[in-house]
Design a protein around this nucleic acid. Structure first.
Lengths: 148, 148
DNA sequence: ATAAATGCAAAGGGTTTGCAAAGGC
DNA sequence: GCCTTTGCAAACCCTTTGCATTTAT
C-alpha cells in the first residue's frame, strides 16, 4: 500500500540499505509520513492498531529510528517528557507555537529570527549549529471559547 | 546556616506557608540557591552529600517543587531527558546557549528576540505566554582546543 | 537457507508515590 | 502530641534491550 509518495521513498531507502520491507515498517511509515500532526510513539502505535495493522512498541521505536536515519521524519521535544515525530516536509527549519490549553501545535518559519540566533551565538563566541524555539500561548479558538 | 539572602527568603516562604523548616530543606535550598550552574536533581543530591548533609532523592524532588512554587528557583529543559534547575535571579527572562562539546551553558538576554516572539505569536492568533529558546553550538574554548 | 525483524517481557533512567518512622511546631 | 516531612522501596512513564520466534529475501 504505497499510496503516498513519502512511503514509496521510505521503501526506496530500505531497498538501498538492504533492509527488509516488512508489513510493520510500511504500517508505521504510512501512519507517520501521512500525519498532519506531531505524533508520539504511542500515538503511532494506536493509529496503526486503529488501521488494523497492530505493531509492537519496540518495533515502533526501532522503525522510527530508521525513519529518522532516512531523514524522512524529524523529532521534536516540546518538554512533555516524551518525544514527538513528524514527517520532514520541505520546510528547512521551523519553529513551534504550542497552545497551553488544547495542546494544538502550529508551525511557522521566520528567517529574521533564524538570522538573529546566528548573530547572537557568534557575538558570544559560539559557532551556531542549531536552535530550538517553542512559544507557548493560547490559540485563537481557546481564547474565543470562553475562559477555560 | 542562612548565610545567603536567598536561603533566608526561602525560610520566610516556608514560615509564611506554615511549612516546617527542616535541615534537609535548608541543605537543598542552600545548594540550589547559591549555585552558579544549572543543576540536575541528582547533582543537587550529590552536592548536599558532599557538604555533609545527605538527603533522599524523594526529598530532593519534593523540596525542588516547593522552591519552584516559591518562585526562588526556575526549571530548565535542555533536551537532555531530565530537568535542570537554577536560582531565579533578577533577570526577567533569558535564553540559553549550550555547547554541544563540553556542555557549558551561557545565558543571554535579547529584547528584540523577545519582542519578535510576541509579534509572531500574535500574528497567528496566539496570546503569547512564554517561550523557550536554546541555541546549540560550539563554544570558543572548544573551537580553539583543536577539533574534538 | 540465511540473516534480519518481530514481539514479548524485562531492564533502564528520571521522577513520583505509599507508608512507617522521624521530627518540627 | 499533632501533623508534616523524611527515606526507603515500589511504582510510574517513556524508551531500550535480550532473546526465542517469525519472516523477507
Amino acid at each position: 500500500m504505497p499510496d503516498h509518495p513519502a512511503v514509496a521513498r521510505f521503501v526506496g531507502y530500505l531497498r538501498e540499505h538492504n533492509l527488509p520491507v516488512t508489513a510493520q515498517r510500511l504500517a508505521i511509515a504510512d501512519v507517520l509520513l501521512t500525519s498532519e500532526r506531531h505524533l508520539s510513539a504511542e500515538e503511532v502505535a494506536l493509529e496503526a492498531t486503529a488501521r488494523g495493522r497492530s505493531v509492537g512498541t519496540a518495533t515502533v521505536y526501532r522503525t522510527i529510528d530508521t525513519l529518522l536515519e532516512s531523514g524522512l521524519v524529524v523529532e521534536r521535544d516540546f518538554g512533555e517528557g516524551f518525544r514527538r515525530f513528524e514527517p520532514a516536509r520541505d520546510i528547512p527549519h521551523h519553529e513551534h507555537l504550542v497552545c497551553t490549553q488544547c495542546g494544538r501545535v502550529e508551525e511557522f518559519r521566520d528567517e529574521r529570527l533564524e538570522r538573529m540566533t546566528t548573530i547572537v551565538a557568534e557575538s558570544r563566541g559560539f559557532a551556531r549549529q542549531r536552535h530550538r524555539l517553542v512559544i507557548h500561548g493560547i490559540c485563537r479558538d481557546c481564547q474565543t471559547q470562553g475562559h477555560r
